[in-house]
Design a protein around this nucleic acid. Sequence first.
DNA 1: GCCAACGTTGGC
DNA 2: GCCAACGTTGGC
Length: 145
Amino acid sequence: MAAVKSKVERRAWLVKSEPSVYPWNQLVADGVTLWDGVRNYEARNHLRSMKKGDLALFYHSNEGKELVGIAKVVKTAYADPTSDEDWSVVDFAPVKKLKVPVTLAAIKAEPRLAEMLLVKRSRLSVVPVLPSELRLLLEMAETKL
DNA sequence: GCCAACGTTGGC
DNA sequence: GCCAACGTTGGC
């Protein structure tokens, strides 16, 4: 049987940052940053399973409560220099700002996004995003990759 | 500023 | 290994 090469969609994640701590604009200014300070095992494991080129939707928590931009993984997980314990960081670089920010309210109002871990596991700071969710979010943001 | 959700810690 | 107490995150 002939092998059919399935189209593999790029994996996507969602990462949260409080704008008062590290806003999207800072990532743009920095060009690349290490995503440090994650102190939750599940979130850490997500960081560790990220691959170079994976996308990361950038979410502003507490203030804004909206997706503001798209970043990508430029370096896979390595030891968090801010800890002596077994935590990890990855490096992100900005890809592009969303034309229209996608608010948490808009996400909650969209039934097709009801299963998003952003909503279901609101305290997790690093969560995976399904390809279908990514597609829809990009539509809502009026942004193309 | 409050509080719900939930992960972690520590006593038993 | 259970579970109460506690701490943190993040929406409201």
